[in-house]
Design a protein around this nucleic acid. Structure first.
Length: 423
RNA sequence: GGAGAGAUGGCUGAGUUGGCUUAAGGCGCACGCUUGGAAAGCGUGUGUAGGUUAACACCUACCCAGGGUUCGAAUCCCUGUCUCUCCGCCA
């Protein structure tokens, strides 16, 4: 959510900044509703002040034996007017909230103006895409031939965009999760294991709702949603809290399954592990002081990069342009890994600074010192990293001509073997 | 799933026969006095949000949440959420 005071004091600037995301934005309706609301507020508050002062004098008047009946008649009228105005204000606030909750975050000024991923800035590369001395296969073919990935059975049991991992495939998935968690906890992240379902307010707190409800799975007969990422439960851990400044920066890492309806991506990435309705991810989440949040974004991105470096997977880091930026984010670095089957880099991690956008929605604040005013924290998160895509990446990048796959050294203790071959 | 109890400022804890309570008292915290320095003691202050104002200030709301009764609600009524206890079921 954007600061209402900023919207009031500088609407043109906000409109201009938001239009960098594409399309035009007008705050006129908000400004009008806001003005009307404040006018009514003054009126009802004055009436309430009168109610309070008269009420306070009633016991004394009664004691003196005065007739209070005429006062009650007048007060009854005031009471009814207050009720009517309050109802009107409630409706206005509903409309104002609707506007506020659908406005995306303001992109950081360093974020390049652009329309799509074609305008993203490449920040750096690590490693070189491997030159194959043979025709490399796609991970869905490798996985099927080795008998470790099975989309057909998942389609029979559930539907499309699901996969059974079997044998060494299942073990590899589990090994990667543990490797990621161990690496991040070693670097100061506290491990949490969150609920995989959250209520509506949590989804709203991190920005998935109200605008993107069709992207989420809603659990029937409840008001719960399957989490699209651990970002949702973990960021909301501190909702409606005032943290101490000396606790910050708080760093969490969390494994979770993630569930996405993938509405609007029909026909895209239909084969393999790249776009599934359910996938595993280890997420990194930070709560930081505003002045620290951009250096924390750099270190968070570096923490996500570390696991890829340890696995020996070549990647590049791009900074998303304004048009490609997520709804809640002020700045995002995507980490993209080289995927031979796609013959291009594919996103495996997205690291964002939301500044106070989520904190404002979820009410996450901190106090600099005892007695000082609470301020909103800045929240950040990033994949550290997507597990299914890592499996795909390992299968493709480390495949051998004979159809076997060499497992990165760092996974040896987790896997118990360094080659996956057909059983 | 059934029965019962509960939810009050950072913490603790009164108030629950509706109006002398602007939510008592204690703890904690901040500042001051005291002291060679500290502790103790004494004094003062100490919630959040919204609004009015050039400012000093003032006003309004908030006792889990949302409705209702009333001139007036922490207090009475309804609905919901959560916590605890017991029973049932259960990995």
């Amino acid at each position: 959510m954007i600061d209402v005071k900023l919207l009031r004091s500088n609407p043109e600037k906000v409109e201009e900044a938001l239009s960098r995301r594409g399309g035009t934005v007008s705050l006129d309706s908000f400004l009008e509703l806001d003005k009307k609301r404040r006018e009514l507020l003054v009126e009802t508050e004055n009436l309430k002040a009168k109610q309070n002062s008269v009420s306070k004098s009633i016991p004394a008047l009664k004691k003196e034996g005065k007739d209070v009946a005429p006062i009650f008649v007048e007060m009854k009228e005031i009471s009814e007017r207050v009720k009517a105005i309050d109802e009107e204000i409630r409706q206005l606030e509903g409309e104002i909230d609707k506007v506020l909750l659908t406005l995306p975050n303001i992109p950081h000024e360093k974020v390049k103006t652009g329309l799509s991923d074609e305008d993203n800035e490449v920040i750096r590369h690590w490693g070189e895409p491997r030159e194959f001395g043979f025709e490399p296969k796609a991970h869905w073919d490798i996985g099927e031939e080795l008998g470790i990935l099975d989309a057909a059975t998942a389609a029979k049991v559930t539907g499309t965009r699901f996969t059974f991992y079997k044998g060494d495939g299942a073990t590899l998935e589990r090994a990667i999760i543990n490797f990621f968690l161990d690496t991040h906890t070693k670097h100061g992240y506290k491990e949490v294991f969150p609920p995989f379902m959250v209520h509506r307010s949590s989804m709203q707190g991190t920005g998935q709702l109200p605008k993107f409800e069709e992207d989420a799975f809603k659990v029937a007969n409840t008001d719960y949603f399957l989490i699209p990422t651990a970002e949702v439960p973990v960021t909301n851990m501190h909702r409606e809290e005032i943290l101490n400044a000396d606790e910050l920066t708080i760093k969490y890492c969390a494994y979770s399954a993630c569930f996405r309806a993938e509405a609007g991506s029909a026909g895209r990435d239909t084969r393999g592990l790249i776009r599934q309705h359910q996938f595993n991810k280890v997420e990194l989440v930070k709560f930081a002081k505003p002045e620290d949040s951009y250096s924390e974004l750099e270190s968070l991105t570096a923490d996500a990069e570390r696991v890829l470096q340890l696995l020996g997977i070549p990647y590049r880091v791009v900074r998303l342009c304004s048009g490609d930026l997520g709804f809640s984010s002020a700045m995002t670095y995507d980490i993209e890994v080289w995927m031979p089957s796609y013959n291009r880099y594919v996103e495996i991690s997205s690291c964002s600074n939301f500044e106070d956008f989520q904190a404002r929605r979820a009410g996450i604040r901190f106090r600099r010192s005892p007695g000082s005013k609470p301020e909103f924290v800045h929240t950040l998160n990033g994949s550290g990293v997507a597990v299914g895509r890592t499996v795909a990446c390992i299968l493709e990048n480390f495949q051998n001509e004979d159809g076997t796959v060499t497992i990165p050294e760092v996974l040896l203790t987790y896997m118990g073997k360094n080659v996956i071959e057909k059983e």
